[in-house]
Simulated scan of single mutants.
Amino acid sequence: MSQTLSRGLQVLELLAREGRPLTAQEMAKSLGLSRPIVYRLLHTLAQHHLLSNEVENGRYDLGLGLLSLSRSVQKDLRSAAFPIIKSLVHQLDTTAVLGLRDGDEVVYVLAVEPEFARMAVRSREGTRRPIDDSTSGLALRLTLEPSPDDDEELRQARAKGFAARHIVIDYQATAIAAPIPSFPGPSDACVTVLFPNVIDDIDDKAAVIVEAAQRVARVVRI
C-alpha cells in the first residue's frame, strides 16, 4: 500500500467525516501526523482541486474537483432510484436514504429529506454506518445465508424481510431498512427510512419501504 496515497485519502475522509473546514494543525492531531507531512499532503490535494484553501483562518475544505470524480460513481443507480426514494419520502413525510455496502460499512449514496416536515432526521450523502451495528447493515446481513451463529435480531429480521431498530444515530427514534433484492446472491444495497421519533406501526411502514426497495431493484441492476 502506498503510504502517501493512504494519508492523502485519510485527509479527505477526515474532512468528509467532520463536515466542516479544518486547519492543518487540527488534521495533524486527528491523524497522528506531523504538520510538515500534512502541509505537503494539503498542497498536493489542492493542486488537483480536491481541496480548497480559500477558507478563512487557514482552514481547508473539500474541493470542487471531487465533484468530477464522484459524478459517475453509481450514477445509474442514483438516477434510477431518486424518483422512487423521493416518492417514498413524500409518502412517509420523513428522511430516506439509499445505502451501498463498502467493505464492512454502508455508505449513503443518496439522501432525500422532506421539504415541509416539522421535524426530520438530517442525513448527508457520504455518511457511513457499520455493517455490524446499524439498521442498514442489518438489512444487508439478513440476505446472507443463515448461520448457526446468527443472533435473534438477525433471525427475526430475516423472517420479516426487513430490519427495524428504535435508535437512529444514538438517539431514540426509529429506523427501518429493506434490502434491495439482488439475484443471485446477497444484497449490497438497501433503502433506509429514518423517523425522528419512536413509531408503533412499524409493520405498516415497513411494507411501504420493502415495496420501494423492490421497485428500485426492478429499474436498475445492482
Rank of each mutant, 00 (worst) to 15 (best):
M1D: 08
Q3P: 06
Q3L: 15
T4R: 15
T4G: 04
R7H: 12
G8W: 15
L9E: 03
L9A: 04
L15M: 11
R17G: 02
E18V: 15
G19R: 15
P21I: 08
P21A: 04
L22T: 06
L22E: 04
Q25M: 08
M27Y: 06
S30M: 09
L31C: 04
L31T: 03
R35D: 02
P36H: 11
V38A: 01
V38F: 05
R40F: 08
L42S: 02
L45I: 07
L50H: 06
N53K: 14
N53P: 03
N53M: 10
E54M: 03
V55Q: 08
E56N: 09
Y60C: 03
D61L: 11
L64H: 05
G65W: 01
L66E: 05
L67D: 08
L67M: 10
R71Q: 12
S72T: 15
V73K: 12
D76C: 03
R78Y: 12
R78L: 07
S79K: 14
A81Q: 10
F82I: 03
F82Y: 14
P83M: 10
I84P: 08
I85N: 05
I85G: 03
S87W: 13
V89C: 09
L92N: 06
D93S: 09
D93M: 10
D93Q: 15
V97I: 14
L100A: 01
R101L: 08
L110D: 02
A111P: 13
P114Q: 04
E115A: 09
A117L: 07
A117K: 09
R118T: 07
M119D: 07
A120D: 04
A120H: 15
V121T: 11
R122Y: 13
R124T: 06
E125L: 04
R129I: 13
D132Q: 13
S134E: 08
A139S: 15
A139D: 10
L140N: 01
L142V: 10
L142K: 10
L142E: 05
L144H: 14
P146Y: 05
P146E: 02
S147W: 01
D150G: 00
E153Q: 14
E153N: 06
Q156F: 10
Q156C: 06
R158Q: 05
A164F: 12
H166S: 05
H166P: 03
I167V: 14
V168A: 13
Y171I: 08
I176A: 01
P179L: 10
I180V: 15
P184D: 00
P186E: 08
S187V: 13
A189M: 12
A189F: 12
V193F: 00
V193P: 00
V198I: 14
D203T: 13
K205Q: 07
A206H: 08
V208S: 00
E211N: 08
E211L: 04
E211S: 08
E211I: 01
Q214Y: 03
Q214F: 00
A217C: 01
R221W: 07
